[in-house]
């Protein structure tokens, strides 16, 4: 290609910055101090309750589990409830069960390894944290949690440790402790199934992503 994108960018960048700096908003060498911001506060003792009520308001469902080994059976039950094909895509097995016996998957489920291709009916992921303020589950892209599982499956099941629920959006970022150079490629804050209201402002679930979202809330502290 003969277009020199580097030079093109250099020239334009300079032009744009010249125009910005013509105003009082000049580039200062040291970091400006952002004014402190208020965060909404929530009753810490009722976090799970607040979280679950917001989660339900987003058209998601949930059930509590006290033992990880129950997960395969619950996934099957969920698949049967939706009368869907029984293909499951997940990469959680080695991750969640490193100290425990591996999950005993029922024969009725056919397992597939990520990335998701669009042919799997069910996806199973793990949320590293969740926000009580909004009822959201937070998934970071990783080998265990490939992003395609969150969006290409028809029904998405997410496991969350109860102790990972934080009060507000800001405390969620803090919990993830992110920094440039060390960012997961994608972080998805998921609040309910995919939806659209683009036709006559009527809400319809399952626009492009999952048609349903189900939470398995792990009430016993997980050893991982």
């Amino acid at each position: 290609m003969s277009i020199n994108l580097n030079r093109f960018n250099r020239v334009n960048r300079k032009k744009i910055f010249n125009r910005i700096e013509r105003t009082k908003k000049s580039a200062i060498p040291q970091a400006p101090k952002r004014p402190p911001l208020l965060h909404p506060q929530f009753d810490i003792s009722a976090l799970t309750e607040i979280f679950l009520s917001k989660l339900s308001a987003s058209s998601s469902t949930y059930q509590s589990v006290d033992c990880l080994s129950l997960v395969p059976q619950l996934v099957l039950q969920y698949a049967e409830k939706y009368n869907t094909n029984k293909t499951l895509v997940t990469n959680l097995d080695p991750f969640l069960n490193s100290d425990e016996p591996p999950w005993d998957w029922p024969n009725a489920l056919s397992l597939s390894t990520p990335p998701a291709t669009g042919n799997e009916a069910i996806g199973l992921s793990y949320a590293s944290t969740a926000i009580a303020e909004t009822g959201s589950l937070v998934l970071s892209a990783s080998k265990q949690n490939p992003t395609t599982v969150n969006f290409l499956t028809d029904h998405h099941i997410i496991i969350l440790n109860e102790q990972d629920i934080v009060p507000n959006i800001e405390s969620m970022w803090k919990r993830l402790s992110l920094s440039a150079g060390n960012m997961p490629r994608a972080i998805n804050i998921i609040t309910g199934p995919s939806r659209t209201a683009d036709i006559e402002q009527t809400i319809q679930l399952g626009a492009h992503g999952p048609r349903s979202l189900h939470l398995l809330l792990l009430t016993q502290p997980s050893p991982y």
Partner: peptide
Amino acid sequence: QPITSYTSLFSGPSGIEDLDG
């Protein structure tokens, strides 16, 4: 809505460990 269904943060190309992206 208090928040939309998906709020996503994209921070670059996929890493060595990533299976998609």
